[in-house]
Simulated scan of single mutants.
Amino acid sequence: MKGFYSLLGIVYMVTTSFYFSGENSNLKKEVYLDNTKTVATNTFKKDTKEMSSSEELYNSILFENDHKLNFDVFSKAILGFNNLKKAGKLDESAHLLTVCDFSISSNTKRLWVIDMNEKKVLFNSLVAHGKNTGEEFATNFSNIESSLQSSMGFYITESTYNGDNGYSLKLLGMDKGFNDAAYKRAVVMHGADYVSEEFAAAHKRIGRSWGCPAIPRALTEPIINTIKGKNCLFIYYPDQNYLSSSEWLREA
């Protein structure tokens, strides 16, 4: 009998060990799944928060329906703007953002000056690209002197002067290898008679500069006087090499 009871004891120990082992295994699985859900939830909340912040600002800005800045372009401009602030290139109080979307026709108003505090568009204007950058559409960009091409990327606006093209605004290129030669090349914002709807109607496109983001004569002083003195200008083009290598477009 003793042998029989001993055998029963061994069987009981073996069967219960499997039970508790399975229970612990299930418990570990539940803890693991809970931790995975927590990480996924926190990541989702972070991404959603960042996205909603950008979308919320975008949706609060009163764009004209016919001339609405593309959200993807806006989000990149905001990312660069914030990174420039973090790097101390812009003052903490800076709230003006100028965006030129060179992915669309030069016959459309593709420049926006946005006051992000007031959440409104101060100016929406035509803007020219360089002579060797393209005809109606921009296709080629350069950072080389005498190329007569536009340079994509982020700029910091500086001081004004009166030159061959009249009232002009100096620009400091912030993207190494893409527009950091702008100051040396004398790539500036200035007014031009060829940046007008009348010129576009007569020539099927507005005129082109030597690489400068030229704007209409009538808006030269109002725009330049608004954005001069350490504000952000972003010239956008969907060039994958630029988008993947610009230090200002890196997520924190």
Rank of each mutant, 00 (worst) to 15 (best):
A87V: 14
L69E: 05
D47I: 09
E56G: 14
S53C: 11
K89P: 03
D101R: 02
F102W: 10
L79I: 01
N83S: 09
S60K: 12
M51Q: 07
F71P: 01
K89I: 12
S52W: 09
N117Q: 05
S106T: 01
R110A: 03
N82G: 04
T98N: 01
K85H: 10
H67W: 07
T48G: 13
K109Q: 11
S105K: 12
D91A: 11
I114N: 09
L97G: 05
S103G: 12
F44D: 08
L62F: 10
K109M: 07
F63C: 02
S75C: 09
I104S: 09
L57E: 07
N70I: 08
F44I: 09
Y58P: 11
A94N: 09
A94D: 11
S106N: 13
L69G: 05
I104W: 02
N82K: 14
L57S: 10
L57H: 02
K46S: 15
I114F: 12
F81P: 12
S103I: 09
N83H: 11
N65V: 05
V99R: 06
F63V: 01
L62Y: 03
T43K: 12
D101Q: 05
W112R: 05
F71H: 07
I78M: 10
L90Q: 02
N107I: 00
L62H: 13
R110E: 01
V99M: 12
F63R: 02
E56C: 07
N59M: 07
L97D: 04
S60L: 07
K45D: 14
N117E: 10
D72I: 00
I114T: 00
E50V: 04
S53A: 13
L96D: 01
C100N: 11
E50F: 00
L97R: 03
N59F: 10
W112F: 02
S103K: 10
D47C: 11
T48S: 15
A87T: 08
T108E: 13
F63N: 02
T48Y: 13
E56L: 08
S54L: 15
S75A: 14
N70A: 11
S52A: 15
S93F: 04
I61G: 10
N82M: 12
H95L: 00
N83G: 04
E92A: 15
Y58W: 01
E55I: 06
N59Y: 08
K46W: 09
L57G: 10
K76N: 12
S52N: 15
S54W: 07
S103M: 02
R110K: 04
N70G: 03
F71V: 11
K109F: 00
N42E: 13
L111N: 04
I61W: 04
I61T: 08
